[in-house]
Write a protein that binds this DNA or RNA. Structure first.
Lengths: 217, 217
DNA sequence: AATATTTTTTAGGTTAATCTAAAAATGTAT
DNA sequence: ATACATTTTTAGATTAACCTAAAAAATATT
């Protein structure tokens, strides 16, 4: 049985590999886990021992097939719980992360099976992130940053790249929500900000940074 | 912030005091916690330090007001989650204990507030145990073992004393469920077993031991 | 290529929760 | 009340996860 900490390391390794890096460095992991490099080294030895990662001294880690399967199940649980919190308990989407961080470690395959059924097998969490199925498979994911849309083209807002509270609260404030149709009215050369139209209704300005963090399809 | 272990010790001390003993002995706690007396002594020193219990060497422990408040909140969480598991996720009442043991340690007052509202403020869990409110107060509890009912009197089955899986599965099998009206048809002198009628319908025999573990009102 | 910098690992310690074995206190029985 | 038995505590280890400081390896710079 894996500890919460071991599960969190695997999730962190998975997430870092996902966004680029082939081998995950000790320092990158230390930062992600908010701990020190020396502690990471200790843990990597343990995870390697258990065949959850492939680790070679000074060479970084790569998650193993087994480790990936574990990480995906934890991610599945995290995202299912987020759906539950938002859709059933009426949490706002910026409030659920920390609670899901706790709930994702509850050990009961039957619980997840029943929760999934209760939620009617959701495919995406409240931030638009895909929920792996029982076998760790994702549904289709096709999304690009709003920043890549040309002037006068439209897209459907399907996910956020940054799911920090401040960003989500900003989106609430300006009336941007997942599912909205976005039309790019104008791209300002100077700073890369954009004027966009949401659902054919209100027009708003968003910075380049915001445009990079809104994923559309 | 209390650890899971500290919360579990407080719950155990609360439960043991509840059912009798004024001072809880180190050995009783060791048994309840499935650990050794020496470990209990260590923990009692720590809990005492934090004013969660009153502990005097060789004299046993008593839970403090503060410790009791903590224990009651953990019990509240445990029982609310059990209601959720049975009423929403369709778990059987004999399957929920271990999962609730994990869920009870999730730290988020808002989560519990919302869960409670979502479940429509239940007053009892699936085993008939009362759920303390936000302030740790219980609703009215009046229940006696079926064993104390005279021949020809009736009672409403409101809770189980033993909530182990085997007992609950037995109750399922013979058709005894919380809310049922029970009429005592006959008490067999020889072994204390009884013939009872459930909801004015089927008649069954239950042993003395079963009669002691069915709580009626 | 030699030196400097950064990254990673090792060595040795800490804390929480556990353990075993031995010592101390308490309780029981003649 | 003394002796025996039980309970509880202390002493000293262990494991998981972390830490700091120093050493070693890898990488970058001149």
């Amino acid at each position: 049985m894996l500890s919460f900490t071991e599960e969190n390391y695997l999730k962190a390794i998975y997430h870092i590999s996902e966004s680029g890096a082939n081998d995950v460095s000790t320092n990158a992991l230390a930062e992600e886990m908010k701990t020190k490099a020396a502690s990471v080294t200790d843990m990597l030895k343990k995870l390697s021992q258990k065949d959850l990662v492939e680790y070679k001294k000074y060479k970084g880690v790569k998650i193993s097939k087994l480790g990936e399967a574990v990480a995906l199940q934890v991610i599945r649980k995290h995202r299912l719980w987020e759906v539950f919190l938002v859709e059933r308990l009426q949490f706002n989407w910026d409030e659920v992360h920390d609670i899901a961080e706790q709930l994702e470690h509850i050990k009961s395959p039957l619980l997840i099976k029943k929760l999934d059924a209760y939620l009617e097998h959701p495919k995406y969490d409240p931030h638009g992130d895909p929920i792996p199925d029982e076998n760790g498979q994702f549904g289709p994911i096709s999304r690009t940053p709003l920043a890549e849309l040309q002037t006068n083209s439209t897209g459907k807002f399907v996910a956020v790249k940054d799911s920090s509270s401040p960003f989500l609260q900003y989106l609430d404030k300006v009336g941007l929500y997942i599912g909205a149709t976005i039309l790019v009215l104008e791209i300002i050369e100077f700073d890369g900000s954009r004027e966009i139209e949401v659902d054919g209704q209100n027009k708003i300005f968003v910075s380049q940074q915001v445009a990079n963090n809104l994923l559309i399809h």
